[in-house]
Structure formats: structure tokens, C-alpha cells
């Protein structure tokens, strides 16, 4: 794998600082408010890869939507490099659990989406091939999404995000629907990408092992409404080993925090 050339971006790809300040959020459910986030405080430094762990449906994905700028928080504020987030921006790109490729576009045209939307297709079109090479999809440019396997579709979605040279990559269970072998392979690939590109990463996952294998920090959330229960730095060098006893110890602690210690 090769890194995207950083010369044609503003000041290289410097990771973004994210400051989540006292954010609470609730949905309107049949007229009654349903609180999903409760006073979340979180600061992510440039170049960190932070994993968000928590029970299913606790509101982790909602936090990602707020950081992406797809919705404004009910209370509190989120700062990106010190400026409040007031909407989506191509510097903060999301990869969802479903690849959500546009079925009417070829792989290449799907990857081109961000450049096309910003009118950069002509001047920056060469970046598409690099992004495809980066995720190992060279040769599949003209395939349609229904012709791709799950792993290839998710790689295409990743290329669609990376072609914009994001300073924050928001990963919402990106490997959740893949088979376990593909998932293990793509965990390593994502770590390599992140280490060579220097963006800040926010990763929601259900998989403790995945969080420990990939992240610099793991944030453990409570059930809904989500509060931060623990903030665990994972101070282990890359590339990591899944059998690392320090990670095993951390895994035990996280299970404890999630109330699942007896299954260990």
C-alpha cells in the first residue's frame, strides 16, 4: 500500500483536534424526548485513533453524527480545531457500517463523489486512482457495486472517504458486517492507513479486540443515555499483536466496565 501524496493538500494531512464540550442529545420519539447522550466531554488530539465502545444502541453512533455535522447537538458544543461545527464538511468524512455505495455509479464514479460534489473532478481527478490503489481496488474501477463482495464494497467506501484527504476520519462500525477473516485483514490495513496518513480517527465498534488492536485510546460508554465510563489509553507500539498480554488485561477491564466480567 502507498500513502496518498501529501504535497497536493493544505499543509499535509494534519490530524484535526476535536473538542466535545458537555454535549447532551435527545431524539424526539412520538413527542417524548429520548435522551441518548448525557454530558459527554471528550478531547481528541491530532493524530489520535480513538475507539468508542459501549452497549448496543447506547448513542455512540449519534455522537459520530454530531461530530460529522449531520445533526446539531441538543445541548453543549463540539469544536473542530477550536471552531464550532455547524454542518458537514469534507475535512470530516464518515465511513458507515453499510458501504452505501451508489448502485448506479461504478466504483470509480463512487470514489469520485466528493471531488465531483466540490467541483474538483477536473483538477484533482488523478487522486481517484491513488485512493483506489490505496485500498487495493485497482482493476475494479468499472465494476458496479452489486458486483463487489462485502469487503470490496467497504474498501470502495473507504477510498471514497480517503480521496478527500480527510483530517478526521469517522468510522461507524466500518467492519461490522464483514466476515471475520476479512475483518482481521482490514483492521491491519486501516491501522497502516492511519499511521501513514496522519489523520485523526474516531472509531465506533462493538468489538473489544478490534478497539484494542487499533486504537490509541478506548472510551467506554454506559448504556443509554450514554455517559463516558472510562477513558483508557492503549500505550502499546504498532504493529500490535492480538495475543499481547497487556491487551488481554485491558480487555478484561473493559469487559468488567461493560458488566460482562463473568463471561471471561
Amino acid at each position: 500500500m502507498v500513502a496518498l501524496e501529501s504535497t497536493d493538500t493544505q499543509a499535509g494531512v494534519a490530524g484535526m483536534t476535536i473538542d466535545v464540550q458537555a454535549v447532551s442529545h435527545s431524539f424526539d420519539l412520538h413527542g417524548a424526548p429520548l435522551p441518548v447522550l448525557d454530558g459527554v466531554e471528550l478531547r481528541v488530539e491530532p493524530g489520535e485513533l480513538v475507539a468508542l465502545l459501549g452497549p448496543s444502541g447506547c448513542g455512540k453512533s449519534t455522537l459520530l453524527r454530531l461530530v460529522a455535522g449531520l445533526e446539531p447537538p441538543s445541548r453543549g458544543s463540539i469544536l473542530a480545531d477550536g471552531r464550532p461545527i455547524d454542518g458537514p464538511d469534507p475535512s470530516r468524512v464518515v465511513v458507515f457500517q453499510d458501504p452505501t455505495l451508489y448502485p448506479w455509479r461504478t466504483v470509480r464514479d463512487n470514489v469520485a463523489l466528493g471531488l465531483e460534489a466540490r467541483g474538483l473532478l477536473r483538477s484533482q481527478g488523478h487522486r481517484i486512482d491513488k485512493a483506489l490503489a490505496l485500498v487495493g481496488l485497482t482493476g475494479f474501477e468499472r465494476a458496479y457495486p452489486h458486483q463487489l463482495s462485502g469487503g470490496m464494497a467497504q474498501r470502495a467506501a473507504l477510498a471514497r472517504a480517503l480521496v478527500n484527504d480527510p483530517r478526521l476520519l469517522i468510522l461507524d462500525e466500518p467492519l461490522g458486517k464483514l466476515d471475520s477473516l476479512t475483518r482481521l485483514a482490514m483492521q491491519s490495513e486501516l491501522v497502516d492507513l492511519w499511521r501513514s496518513s496522519g489523520f485523526t480517527g474516531l472509531l465506533v465498534t462493538h468489538d473489544i479486540e478490534e478497539a484494542l488492536f487499533m486504537a490509541t485510546r478506548v472510551i467506554v460508554f454506559s448504556g443509554r443515555p450514554a455517559r463516558i465510563k472510562a477513558d483508557l489509553p492503549i500505550d502499546r507500539p504498532y504493529p500490535r499483536h492480538r495475543g499481547d498480554p497487556v491487551l488481554t488485561e485491558l480487555r478484561h477491564r473493559i469487559l468488567e466496565l461493560l458488566g460482562l466480567a463473568e463471561t471471561w
Binding site: 460529522a68 455535522g69 449531520l70 458537514p88 464538511d89 469534507p90 470530516r92 468524512v93 464518515v94 458507515f96 453499510d98 452505501t100 451508489y102 463523489l113 466528493g114 460534489a117 466540490r118 471514497r160 478527500n164
Partner: peptide, 11 residues
């Protein structure tokens, strides 16, 4: 989700 994707990419 198609709209979400396009919006985060600057559409």
C-alpha cells in the same frame, strides 16, 4: 444514508 454520504463529502 445516500444523502448523509453526499453531505459529508461537501455536496
Amino acid at each position: 444514508a445516500y444523502y448523509d454520504i453526499a453531505r459529508t463529502l461537501g455536496a
